[in-house]
Amino acid sequence: MTQSRTICVVLFLSLSIWTQSAFAASVSVPRSAEAGRTITISTDGSGVGHLYIVGPSGAVERTIQLGARISIPPDEISNAGHYTVFLITSTSTETADLDITSSPEAASLSFLARPSRLPVSLQKGVGGVAYIFDAYHNLVMQSQPVHFQLTLPNTAPEIHTVDSHQGVAWIQMDSSARAGNASFEAAVGKGTSLRVLQEVPGDACQLRMSARPVGDRLHVQTAPLRDCTGNLVADGTIVTFTEIYDGNRSTVDAPLKNGIAEADIPANRGAVITVAAGEVLGNQLRWNGGQ
């Protein structure tokens, strides 16, 4: 009698445990998946459950039939990041981790190029930093070759390739010996980005002018004004012509264009004419009527 009672109890407990396990759910999630791919999640058990996939990069909620496979399309979870998967049924809570990684295919980049204006022939004067992104604006963590190209018009481009680390590649280059607007481009995969850097000449090295009569006035003009490396001084730089005559002064602030500044001043016989650009003084002329 006692024996049969014991058997009954054991049978009851076994049945209970079997029933519990028959309804308990489990979830199977890939440990990691690439952004832009469909994620397939498998569950065991039977009945209905709630699936939550959450993280700072996304949140998905589904009511699911246990035992079925669930597909999460790329547009629902495309942000790279760490996600926690919760499967909640009436009797249990299952959890799992899911890492969405960025795609190794670079699609775009953010390119910081500095400075926007710098002197010619400056060592390591040009700096470029490229942050690389996939098609879903995730930082591409896999190393990528990034091509940096600095080009001045009518010169051979200077090209460097740098491998990215943790989504960023950077370079420092010398500025060119010639002045001008340089194109600075970074390219990786399908992404390119262009910046313009102005490589500017230095101050005038030597200043000379000449004068000739034009009608009843005197036309003064500088010789092409260059810096000490031979580049024409920047357009727009002010050159001041001054004429002193009979205690009176006449001045003209004329801007350089293609290295030359010119102006018309009164043609007074005996006038003394000087020229200056910033702190650089040029030659002095005494106008004696063209002789």
């Binding site: 727009g236 009176n248 102006a263 009164p266």
Partner: peptide, 28 residues
């Protein structure tokens, strides 16, 4: 724009009592 260039001609300082700097402007 670098335009216009203005020439300042015949600058001179007139004497006391009403001192002023005078001259002529010419738009080139």
């Amino acid at each position: 724009s670098a335009d216009p260039v203005i020439e300042i001609e015949n600058q001179k300082l007139s004497g006391a009592p009403h001192t002023s700097l005078t001259g002529e402007l010419r738009n080139e």
